[in-house]
Design a protein around this nucleic acid. Sequence first.
DNA 1: AAGTGGTCTAGACCACGGG
DNA 2: CCGTGGTCTAGACCACTTT
Lengths: 237, 237
Amino acid sequence: MVQAELQHLKIAEYLIDCISAGVYKEGDKIPSENELCRQFGTNRSVVRQAVARTASLGWLTSWQGKGSFVNQRPRLVPYNLSSSTCFSDNMNNQGIMHSCKLLKCVKRQPTEKEKYYLQLDRESSVYELEILRYVDRCPISVTTTILPAEKVPQLEKHLNNFQSLYQVMSGYYHLKPRRFKSVFQAMLPVTSDAELLHIPENVPIIKIESFVNHLDQPVEYSNSRIRGDMQKGLITF
Amino acid sequence: MVQAELQHLKIAEYLIDCISAGVYKEGDKIPSENELCRQFGTNRSVVRQAVARTASLGWLTSWQGKGSFVNQRPRLVPYNLSSSTCFSDNMNNQGIMHSCKLLKCVKRQPTEKEKYYLQLDRESSVYELEILRYVDRCPISVTTTILPAEKVPQLEKHLNNFQSLYQVMSGYYHLKPRRFKSVFQAMLPVTSDAELLHIPENVPIIKIESFVNHLDQPVEYSNSRIRGDMQKGLITF
DNA sequence: AAGTGGTCTAGACCACGGG
DNA sequence: CCGTGGTCTAGACCACTTT
């Protein structure tokens, strides 16, 4: 790697080189800011700028009171995007250990957008679920799912020991959900999603909106925010 | 927006509020760092931290010697991801003004990965193209395309006034390229791509790798890096 | 020449975590 | 308690743009 002239870039490159070369391994603590000041004979502002840059490039995370630690480099889990909608099946097919947690389940009036997407009239209400999914005990995505209440009456009664929304929909309501459209986009997470996913605000995510039908009737609209550093999407035509 | 206790967060929130409220509009220059120091009765480091945060959240871009300016918020151009591979057609179908520029065309030996993807034997060579695409004169994506040289002999002779790779492939070589697999992922751009796309390093991009066949024979492998703030992908099943 | 942001210095105090 | 990173001060000089 070419030597930079600027001090903070030089220190950042040094850190990245060390991590790349395995001098500091995943989970290791790098030297403290004051120690780096001594090593490079410079000021703490400069060192902080270097560490901040290295962190924003995804190599480190800093923790107040503890130090700065080399990020885990998780493997990229492929997600097969097709008309089949089941996350569990998708992971099981690849032999990937996974789980999920239901964060929220409320019944409420739909927004205008939801009315339009789900073709609802003015009287109807919807369920809003929030589901956090894990791969190898690591949070990978958070999904907000909107379901028309008339399609899944008393949904809250079937969500104990929640494992898979698809199982609930097919098991209790005899629905065969099929994804017919998805829209995906790269963005930075909002603060609340960053917290749920245990990532700093500068790690990009993929937002996938999916529109799901049962026999040409809309039964689900979902909005997933997925860690870009952990999952890639596969599409086959 | 709730008032933060910390000075740099307070100033960052103030700037974002002003931009949201239209006090500073797209392309406007915000007050200089020294001016903000005076307004908030604080130090330039604090103001710089605030401006850096606001910039990293995508609201501003700073230019040495000129000032900090409110980012344009470009509309999101939808890209229809299907087995049809043509960017031009995709944009034309939506009535979106577009163009492209050929940055590179070289004939070389394939890498191991390219040999595998394109099912090449050891003697064969490939063309590598780099194409920068624009929407409304704004760079939106950069694509590296690998083509087996035997499928497109003397390709360089057909690239004057380059408009569409699909046109060249079908017009001169009678190929009917069909995308059969794509893999997409959110990430941050490498420095060279950030420069080509005119974005700072903290704007996420979507990387889309596409595998393209002609009559079940691989004819193209492409790797696109697309500005996440300008394009969203559409998939229909 | 004046104004802008970029880099850097040399300190200070605070909040948090672990021994 | 001590070491850590987080915040903040009050300056300095430099590179670049505009006037």
